[in-house]
Design a protein around this nucleic acid. Structure first.
Length: 214
DNA sequence: TTCCCGCAGG
DNA sequence: CCTGCTGGAA
Protein backbone atom coordinates (compact mmCIF):
# COMPACT_ATOMS: atom_id res chain seq x y z
CA UNK A 1 0.00 0.00 0.00
CA UNK A 2 1.12 3.60 -0.29
CA UNK A 3 1.97 5.99 2.52
CA UNK A 4 -1.26 7.97 2.32
CA UNK A 5 -3.32 4.83 2.79
CA UNK A 6 -1.17 3.64 5.67
CA UNK A 7 -1.47 7.01 7.41
CA UNK A 8 -5.26 7.00 7.06
CA UNK A 9 -5.62 3.46 8.37
CA UNK A 10 -3.39 4.11 11.36
CA UNK A 11 -5.26 7.31 12.12
CA UNK A 12 -8.50 5.35 12.48
CA UNK A 13 -7.01 3.21 15.23
CA UNK A 14 -4.56 5.36 17.15
CA UNK A 15 -4.91 8.68 18.93
CA UNK A 16 -1.41 10.04 19.42
CA UNK A 17 -2.19 13.57 20.52
CA UNK A 18 0.10 14.30 23.44
CA UNK A 19 1.94 11.05 22.75
CA UNK A 20 5.24 12.40 24.03
CA UNK A 21 4.55 12.77 27.75
CA UNK A 22 6.72 15.85 28.25
CA UNK A 23 6.30 19.23 26.61
CA UNK A 24 9.30 21.12 27.97
CA UNK A 25 11.95 21.14 25.19
CA UNK A 26 14.82 20.23 27.49
CA UNK A 27 12.87 17.37 29.06
CA UNK A 28 12.11 16.06 25.58
CA UNK A 29 15.82 16.22 24.78
CA UNK A 30 16.72 14.31 27.92
CA UNK A 31 14.07 11.70 27.15
CA UNK A 32 15.30 11.34 23.59
CA UNK A 33 18.77 10.40 24.79
CA UNK A 34 17.59 8.16 27.61
CA UNK A 35 15.18 6.18 25.43
CA UNK A 36 17.88 4.95 23.09
CA UNK A 37 17.52 1.16 22.90
CA UNK A 38 15.43 1.36 26.06
CA UNK A 39 11.85 0.84 27.16
CA UNK A 40 10.02 4.10 27.80
CA UNK A 41 8.90 3.01 31.28
CA UNK A 42 12.51 3.09 32.42
CA UNK A 43 12.93 6.56 30.93
CA UNK A 44 10.01 7.90 32.95
CA UNK A 45 11.51 6.42 36.09
CA UNK A 46 14.82 8.18 35.49
CA UNK A 47 13.34 11.52 34.46
CA UNK A 48 11.16 11.68 37.55
CA UNK A 49 14.11 10.65 39.70
CA UNK A 50 16.18 13.43 38.16
CA UNK A 51 13.37 15.90 38.77
CA UNK A 52 13.00 14.79 42.38
CA UNK A 53 16.72 15.26 42.96
CA UNK A 54 16.67 18.67 41.31
CA UNK A 55 19.13 17.59 38.63
CA UNK A 56 16.82 17.94 35.65
CA UNK A 57 17.40 21.63 34.81
CA UNK A 58 20.22 22.37 32.36
CA UNK A 59 22.51 24.13 34.81
CA UNK A 60 21.92 21.59 37.57
CA UNK A 61 22.64 18.68 35.25
CA UNK A 62 25.72 20.39 33.89
CA UNK A 63 27.12 20.82 37.39
CA UNK A 64 25.90 17.52 38.83
CA UNK A 65 28.13 14.88 40.32
CA UNK A 66 28.71 12.27 37.62
CA UNK A 67 28.20 9.28 39.89
CA UNK A 68 24.91 10.65 41.16
CA UNK A 69 23.78 11.19 37.59
CA UNK A 70 24.77 7.64 36.71
CA UNK A 71 22.76 6.29 39.61
CA UNK A 72 19.63 8.15 38.56
CA UNK A 73 19.98 7.15 34.92
CA UNK A 74 20.76 3.52 35.66
CA UNK A 75 17.24 2.15 34.99
CA UNK A 76 17.67 3.13 31.33
CA UNK A 77 20.72 0.95 30.77
CA UNK A 78 24.03 2.07 29.23
CA UNK A 79 24.03 4.32 32.26
CA UNK A 80 27.65 5.43 32.14
CA UNK A 81 27.42 6.51 28.51
CA UNK A 82 24.02 8.14 28.94
CA UNK A 83 25.04 10.06 32.06
CA UNK A 84 28.10 11.36 30.25
CA UNK A 85 26.19 12.26 27.10
CA UNK A 86 23.46 14.08 29.02
CA UNK A 87 25.98 16.04 31.02
CA UNK A 88 28.00 16.92 27.91
CA UNK A 89 24.82 18.17 26.27
CA UNK A 90 23.84 20.18 29.33
CA UNK A 91 27.29 21.76 29.54
CA UNK A 92 27.20 22.57 25.83
CA UNK A 93 23.84 24.31 26.13
CA UNK A 94 24.84 26.10 29.31
CA UNK A 95 28.10 27.41 27.88
CA UNK A 96 27.14 28.11 24.26
CA UNK A 97 23.43 28.91 24.48
CA UNK A 98 22.97 30.66 27.80
CA UNK A 99 21.45 27.49 29.29
CA UNK A 100 18.49 27.91 26.93
CA UNK A 101 17.81 24.84 24.76
CA UNK A 102 15.34 26.79 22.64
CA UNK A 103 18.04 29.14 21.39
CA UNK A 104 19.77 26.07 19.95
CA UNK A 105 16.60 24.47 18.61
CA UNK A 106 15.48 27.50 16.64
CA UNK A 107 18.72 27.84 14.70
CA UNK A 108 18.76 26.86 11.04
CA UNK A 109 21.59 24.43 11.68
CA UNK A 110 20.03 22.95 14.84
CA UNK A 111 20.02 19.41 13.46
CA UNK A 112 23.71 19.58 12.51
CA UNK A 113 24.59 21.02 15.91
CA UNK A 114 22.77 18.15 17.62
CA UNK A 115 24.46 15.58 15.40
CA UNK A 116 27.84 17.03 16.35
CA UNK A 117 27.22 16.07 19.98
CA UNK A 118 28.50 12.70 21.22
CA UNK A 119 25.66 10.23 21.65
CA UNK A 120 23.24 12.03 19.36
CA UNK A 121 22.80 10.22 16.06
CA UNK A 122 20.19 10.74 13.32
CA UNK A 123 17.28 9.16 15.17
CA UNK A 124 17.86 11.03 18.44
CA UNK A 125 18.46 14.30 16.58
CA UNK A 126 15.22 13.97 14.62
CA UNK A 127 13.29 13.00 17.72
CA UNK A 128 14.48 16.23 19.30
CA UNK A 129 13.81 18.25 16.17
CA UNK A 130 10.20 17.17 15.90
CA UNK A 131 9.13 16.61 19.51
CA UNK A 132 11.16 19.30 21.26
CA UNK A 133 11.43 21.93 18.51
CA UNK A 134 8.21 21.17 16.66
CA UNK A 135 10.07 21.18 13.38
CA UNK A 136 9.13 18.93 10.44
CA UNK A 137 11.45 15.92 10.59
CA UNK A 138 10.42 12.27 10.30
CA UNK A 139 12.09 9.88 12.71
CA UNK A 140 12.94 6.96 10.44
CA UNK A 141 13.59 4.57 13.34
CA UNK A 142 14.07 0.83 13.00
CA UNK A 143 10.40 0.36 13.92
CA UNK A 144 9.40 2.64 11.07
CA UNK A 145 11.64 0.99 8.52
CA UNK A 146 10.20 -2.37 9.55
CA UNK A 147 6.56 -1.35 9.29
CA UNK A 148 7.06 0.63 6.08
CA UNK A 149 8.94 -2.27 4.54
CA UNK A 150 6.46 -4.97 5.54
CA UNK A 151 3.45 -2.99 4.44
CA UNK A 152 5.11 -2.38 1.09
CA UNK A 153 5.32 1.41 1.38
CA UNK A 154 9.09 1.57 0.93
CA UNK A 155 11.61 -1.25 1.24
CA UNK A 156 14.83 0.25 2.58
CA UNK A 157 17.01 0.02 5.66
CA UNK A 158 18.71 3.31 4.89
CA UNK A 159 17.69 5.94 7.45
CA UNK A 160 18.17 8.95 5.18
CA UNK A 161 16.45 7.36 2.23
CA UNK A 162 13.34 6.45 4.23
CA UNK A 163 13.21 9.88 5.85
CA UNK A 164 13.50 11.64 2.53
CA UNK A 165 10.78 9.46 1.05
CA UNK A 166 8.36 10.27 3.88
CA UNK A 167 9.18 13.98 3.76
CA UNK A 168 8.38 13.98 0.08
CA UNK A 169 5.22 11.88 0.30
CA UNK A 170 3.66 13.39 3.42
CA UNK A 171 4.97 16.94 3.20
CA UNK A 172 6.98 18.90 5.74
CA UNK A 173 4.26 19.12 8.35
CA UNK A 174 5.58 18.62 11.88
CA UNK A 175 2.27 17.39 13.29
CA UNK A 176 1.74 14.82 10.56
CA UNK A 177 5.35 13.65 10.66
CA UNK A 178 5.41 13.25 14.43
CA UNK A 179 1.99 11.59 14.38
CA UNK A 180 3.09 9.06 11.77
CA UNK A 181 6.10 8.17 13.84
CA UNK A 182 4.05 7.82 17.03
CA UNK A 183 1.38 5.70 15.33
CA UNK A 184 3.98 3.42 13.77
CA UNK A 185 5.69 2.91 17.13
CA UNK A 186 2.36 1.97 18.71
CA UNK A 187 1.55 -0.36 15.85
CA UNK A 188 4.98 -1.98 15.91
CA UNK A 189 4.69 -2.66 19.63
CA UNK A 190 1.22 -4.19 19.41
CA UNK A 191 1.17 -6.03 16.09
CA UNK A 192 4.18 -5.53 13.90
CA UNK A 193 6.68 -7.10 16.31
CA UNK A 194 9.88 -8.87 15.31
CA UNK A 195 7.54 -11.82 14.98
CA UNK A 196 4.46 -10.15 13.49
CA UNK A 197 0.97 -10.84 14.76
CA UNK A 198 -0.84 -10.60 11.43
CA UNK A 199 -3.86 -12.58 12.63
CA UNK A 200 -5.10 -9.70 14.78
CA UNK A 201 -3.70 -6.82 12.71
CA UNK A 202 -6.24 -4.47 11.10
CA UNK A 203 -3.76 -3.81 8.30
CA UNK A 204 -3.51 -7.43 7.27
CA UNK A 205 -5.61 -7.02 4.13
CA UNK A 206 -3.70 -4.14 2.49
CA UNK A 207 -0.34 -5.21 3.96
CA UNK A 208 2.18 -6.73 1.60
CA UNK A 209 3.61 -9.06 4.21
CA UNK A 210 0.48 -11.19 4.23
CA UNK A 211 0.29 -10.96 0.47
CA UNK A 212 3.82 -12.33 0.17
CA UNK A 213 2.93 -15.35 2.31
CA UNK A 214 0.15 -16.35 -0.02
C1' DT B 1 30.39 -6.40 14.21
C1' DT B 2 30.69 -5.70 18.89
C1' DC B 3 30.09 -3.25 23.03
C1' DC B 4 27.48 -0.55 26.18
C1' DC B 5 23.55 -2.22 30.39
C1' DG B 6 19.10 -2.46 33.24
C1' DC B 7 14.60 -4.17 33.25
C1' DA B 8 10.03 -6.12 32.01
C1' DG B 9 8.05 -9.96 29.77
C1' DG B 10 7.82 -14.71 28.25
C1' DC C 1 16.17 -19.16 31.98
C1' DC C 2 16.25 -16.04 27.47
C1' DT C 3 14.61 -12.01 24.44
C1' DG C 4 13.97 -7.31 23.03
C1' DC C 5 13.84 -2.53 23.91
C1' DT C 6 11.52 4.59 20.39
C1' DG C 7 20.75 3.77 19.16
C1' DG C 8 25.39 5.34 18.87
C1' DA C 9 30.26 4.79 18.56
C1' DA C 10 34.53 2.30 17.98
Amino acid sequence: MNLQRLYEELEKHYDVKGWWPYSDPWEVMVGSVLTQQTNWNNVMTSIEALRKEGLLPVKAMAAADREKLEKLVRPCGFYRQKAQRLQDLAIYIRDDFGADPVSLLRRDDARELLLSRPGIGPETADSIMVFAAGRPYFVAAAYCRRVLSRTGVINSDDYGEVQEFVHQQLGRDSVRLSSLYAMIVEHAKRYCLARPNCRDCFLAEPCSLIARER
